[in-house]
């Protein structure tokens, strides 16, 4: 084994939590109105990974979600489709079939989501299965236990192995920031994942609270920026979990724009992992279109 596979993390700075909170507070205070708001909401809609990750998921539910992904609001056909549908590996085939002929991608969580507590061989096998079923993107979880023990090399190796197992599929690496405890750890895990070959880094599984807070998202965006400056490689970002309203989503877009620049403001480089966010965006867009505040009852419940 070449010694280069051991990450040094010498590039990871420590994070100033107070400065971070202050910076985020300023992002939250931005006022985005009318035409800018509409275009931001449409962009946010096109960046959503429409997600269902429940034990009770059925093929019927996934097909329903896929239809929503292609046509989010039947009352407004001018809206963009979402970026992807995100499901468990056993439902990838169903989603793939339902989305045939569309540009909506299929993402699958794998590697013993959400805990990651299975042997590496089984976790890699799950990736290969999901890719063989047709997944375009794989959302893996890192071993937070190993990371917190300081066994960075093991985490690095597992990410690299997952990347290899993905083949052509894009790899998103879920750090589960709610279990990493400190911003310093979030920064180190981000650097580790990018060094190991992640195409995207993602905040959370959505099963642990807190999930995608603006603060951890900003830490990760800064990590992506530094990595890009150092290596020239662009890495995508996906906050997931806890982003429930359109206003918060717009705050995230402002953060991306001002940290990474406009190049990242496309579904190719930025995603929202969300389910309830979609309806709130649709309601806000309908409000802008009709001038009337909307009722959640008028939008599909999924």
């Amino acid at each position: 084994m070449a010694e280069t596979s051991t990450p040094t993390l010498i590039h990871s700075p420590t994070i100033d939590a107070v400065g971070l909170a202050e910076r985020v507070a300023r992002f939250k205070a931005r006022s985005i109105k009318t035409a800018s708001k509409v275009s931001a909401l449409r962009l946010a809609l096109s960046m959503i990974d429409l997600t269902t990750l429940e034990g009770k998921d059925t093929p019927g539910k996934v097909r329903q979600l896929c239809r929503k992904a292609v046509c989010p609001d039947p009352a407004d056909s001018s809206l963009p489709h979402v970026a992807a549908v995100c499901v468990y590996p056993s439902l990838v085939r169903v989603a793939k079939d339902a989305l045939k002929g569309t540009k909506v991608r299929v993402a699958s969580v794998a590697t013993s989501f959400p805990s990651g507590q299975a042997v590496l061989g089984a976790r890699l096998e799950e990736i290969r299965y999901a890719v063989a079923e047709g997944a375009d993107e794989i959302d893996m979880v890192i071993s937070r236990g190993k990371f917190l023990c300081g066994d960075f090399a093991a985490v690095y190796d597992e990410i690299a192995a997952c990347k290899e197992a993905c083949g052509e599929a894009h790899l998103k690496v879920i750090l589960e920031t709610g279990e990493l405890h400190t911003y310093d750890n979030v920064r180190r895990a981000s650097d580790l994942a990018m060094e190991a070959g992640a195409d995207f880094i993602k905040t959370s599984t959505g099963k642990v609270s807190p999930a995608a807070t603006p603060e951890v998202t900003l830490v990760m965006l800064q990590a992506i920026q530094d990595f890009h400056v150092r290596t020239g490689r662009m890495v995508g970002m996906k906050p997931a979990g806890g982003i429930r309203d359109a206003k918060t989503a717009v705050t995230f877009l402002v953060m991306v724009r001002e940290t990474l620049g406009p190049a990242w403001l496309t579904p190719e480089w930025f995603r929202f992992g969300a389910s309830t966010l979609t309806n709130d965006i649709l309601m806000q867009l309908a409000k802008q279109r009709t001038g009337h505040y909307q009722s959640p009852h008028d939008f599909t419940n999924d």
Binding site: G291, H292, Y293, S295, P296, D298
Partner: peptide
């Protein structure tokens, strides 16, 4: 006016 038009 917004109360009268409010759909919820």
């Amino acid at each position: 006016p917004p109360m009268a038009t409010y759909k919820d």
